[in-house]
Design a protein around this nucleic acid. Sequence first.
RNA 1: GGAGGGGUGGCCGAGUGGACGAAGGCGGGUGACUCGAAAUCACCUGUGGGCCCCUGAAGGCUCACCGCGGGUUCGAAUCCCGCCCCCUCCGCCA
Length: 425
Amino acid sequence: MLDVERIRRNPEEIRIGLQHRGESPDLVDRFLELDEAYRATLQEVERLRAVRNQVSREIGKMPPGPEREARIVEMRELGERLVAEEARLRDLEAQREELLLQFPNIPHPSVPVGSDESANRVVRVEGEIPEFDFPPLPHWELGPRLGLIDFERGVKLSGSRFYVLWGLGARLERALIQWLLDLHTQVHGYLEVYVPFVVKREALVGAGQLPKFEDNLYHDVEDDIWLVPTAEVPLTNLHRDEILEADQLPLYYVAYTPCFRRERMSAGRDVRGIKRGHQFDKVELYKFTTPETSYLELEKMVEDVVDTCRRLGLPTRVVEICTGDLGFAAAKTYDVEVYAAGCGEWLEVSSVSNTEDFQARRANLRYRPRPGARPRYMHTLNGSGLGLPRTVIAILENYQQRDGSVVVPEVLRPYMGVEVLRGPR
RNA sequence: GGAGGGGUGGCCGAGUGGACGAAGGCGGGUGACUCGAAAUCACCUGUGGGCCCCUGAAGGCUCACCGCGGGUUCGAAUCCCGCCCCCUCCGCCA
């Protein structure tokens, strides 16, 4: 959510921000109009309430009699007017709030301006792209051939875009989760958190998924409870409605969760393999910081993610996302991609964003700069560390051997119990 | 799921229709005392919104908030209804 004051004072800045994202700037004018009507009505309501409070207090002190009765009648009439004005106010307030929730974050000045992903900038490349003396297979062939990935049975159980992992395929998934959590907690300084995999509506509003992206979420109507599309949602809401002390910041959290996405908007894209499914595992990094340090922390988080890829021995590049390709809540984002030799693609395994105070305003995340000082909104950052299926893809495809086996990256061997994947067992 | 009890400020806790944003205590801050500290004393100490003033986080006025949402009333922390959460007991269960 944007600062209302900022929209009022610098409407042009917001219009430009929206345009750079490829969105209509009309939102600003619609909001300003509604905001004005809202405030006018608010003032009238408060004026009436002030009179009522004042007179009611006087009534309490008056002896019974005609004078007192007259005042009561007067206030009864005023009360009727007040009820009507209050109804109007509630209506305007709801509309205003709804509109406010539609605003995406405004890109940071350093973000390259561009309309789509073609304007994204590769800012860093690391590691060697593996070379093979045989044609490397894509994972959707390698996986089933080794008995690690079973697409048919996934579809049988749950429909398209679900899959089953067998034996060492399942173990690889679990090993990665374990290794990632150990790495981030022991080397990168994050605190491990275990969070619920379903959340209330407010949590999704707080993180920015609702009301705009309802289509992409699984939802139990009976209890109005939602499957998390990313651990970012519960993590954002961990400190909702709290006021932390400055010396508690920054907070570094890491959480593993499965993620559930309906992916209705992307039907037809990336249909082969496990690159895009309705359910996938992810280890998520999250930071709560002061506004002063958030951009420094963003760079550090990117470095943590790159370090993770490096340790897995995967060719890695960092892409600075342009304004037109930025996610709803992000002010600035770097994608971290790894190269997968079988399908010949750079795969996004992490998207690292600074949302500045966008989520903090929605979820009411504040801190006190000094003891006794007024609370301020924190800044929040999120990034995958890493998304599992794509990491699995890159491992299978880059570490494959002529004989069809796959060598296990060294760091995972203690977690896997084997050095080579030759079959599911 | 059933029965009973309960949700008040950073924390504890009083308050069952009017002067209550809310006693008292704890915690925190400032000052006095002290060479310094402790102790003691004095004062201050919730959040959000709107308006005025203004370059502003300084000041003034005002509204809202006692789990959440409705209602009754001139007036609600207090009465009524619905919901949520917590505790105890019973039931069920990994």
